[in-house]
Nucleic acid binder design. Structure first.
Lengths: 131, 131
DNA sequence: CTGTATCCTATTTGATACTG
DNA sequence: CAGTATCAAATAGGATACAG
């Protein structure tokens, strides 16, 4: 990458271009339950009821909404079997699986970041006092 | 990691443990403007007004709110200079900088994912028709 | 079993005006 | 310059009941 003056419009545009994909990606994993669902599906396909059981605090409404959103974003694949009683299975798409290692890194970062923060908190009390 | 039966509660707990850090991390980068700000700060410290100029569509209110949230999350450091007129500079913390490469990967994934989706869309029209 | 429909609350964001 | 204050709009999320 050649050097660009930091004041040039082009320089700023390069940054924005990069942003857009990140923001697009972030919008796909946004939502209270998306990552939770993602995580459970990394180990394989699951039925609606199985997901519900693994995430006891989610309501059926939210599970449906989130799964629909993830389906729309091509993160999960929904397979309906024409049986009685109905059976519907959810699994990560190829893209969804490719996201997993990145999310794992994000988790690692989160773990370390949390540690660092706690370590700092025990030294400096001004934040607590400010409350 | 030793093998655990997939039906055991422990197995599910392991997944949940992993989730938590991810969700914690996600909550820190959530918000309409967080990633945009993050991105601009990767190239160095910026003043309030400079950020505002680089993100023309953000309101001062939102810029303030997001920066405060990111400060609270220890992603950015805020430095106030006792000058007239006032000068305040924002920069990524060490943790914030460590997040950058992960966000870059997320952006790469987003770019590819977007491509894949568009390619699929041009072949299959049922989704468009369903609308 | 796998969802929908309805109603309601909480949180987030935006518009605009004002301040030390 | 770097914010606050206030009000309004939009969006996300939850509780509950019901349906194919």
């Amino acid at each position: 990458m050649s050097k660009i003056k930091e004041t040039s419009t082009n320089f700023e545009n390069k940054i924005f271009l990069n942003e857009c994909d990140q923001i697009f990606a972030a919008s796909l994993i946004a939502g209270q339950w998306t990552l939770v669902i993602c995580c459970h599906l990394t180990t394989g396909k699951l039925r609606f009821g199985e997901l519900k059981k693994r995430i006891p605090t989610i309501t059926e409404r939210m599970l449906t909404l989130q799964l629909r959103k993830m389906e729309e974003g091509d993160l999960v694949k929904r397979t309906v079997y024409a049986e009685v009683p109905p059976r519907v299975e959810y699994e990560l798409t190829k893209s969804g699986q490719e996201l997993s290692p990145i999310l794992k890194q994000l988790g690692e970062w989160g773990k370390n970041h949390r540690k660092t923060r706690n370590a700092e908190k025990s030294c400096t009390t001004h934040k607590v006092l400010a409350q």
